[in-house]
Amino acid sequence: MKKLWFLLLCCMLFMTCGILSVSAQDLSEDVVRAVTENLDNFFPITTLWEKFDRKAPSIFGNLGTETATETNTNETRNMLLFVNPDGLSTYVFWEKVNSRNSKNFCFSMDVTVNDIYPPQESGCFIGFINDGPSSSAEKEPLQTTMIVISDAIYMETQTEDGSLTDRNKLADRRGPQVNLMIVRLTGETLFYVDGEMVGQYHDGKSGPFSLRYGTVAYSHGEAAECSFDNLSVREVMK
């Protein structure tokens, strides 16, 4: 009788593992490796390459609880966000990338974290949002998907009002400057840090998407100062 119970338990464990592995929708290792090794031929069209080495207008904003500035200095784009936190709201100060809306792209930037305080409550990010003109009749809810350098490196999704819907740690923090890259191809998103694939995500959105980068302060975040450089956007087709 004991053996029967043991077998039954094993069967249940096996089935649970099976269900979990089916529901986890990660791409296979072979597919991820094929994409990673062939980024140059999956995304051969460079649509934007920005080194921030030209003069650009500075931006200053003050909304009472938040103050934000954006300047080009030392051939980088610098973004500052100061917040008087209310313990509830997330503040995002972002810049839209001047490239066309797209469903398939490889978006890369060098990001330097100058100051984030407190470290776990603020960060620097690059990401994308499904705010492009959609061909579908039904407008899908807006969602920002991003890779954030905070106390660690995270993948996050936010709704239009800044509420977090997903947050997964991808990697530990690295040196002061890292290269962040987001690859979105046929609905699958891969996140890279310094060329290493650290995570993947299936957003279920049809897009098209516009690209963004910027700073974020969560409910208790007070400051985020980030520098951005070497912005690159590559696409699959012209």
Binding site: D40, N41, F42, P44, L185, T186, G187, V236, M237
Partner: peptide
């Protein structure tokens, strides 16, 4: 490189 999509989700190169 020449790329095109087939059936939306398949990439022909």
């Amino acid at each position: 490189y020449f790329n095109e999509f087939i059936n939306g989700d398949i990439i022909h190169q």
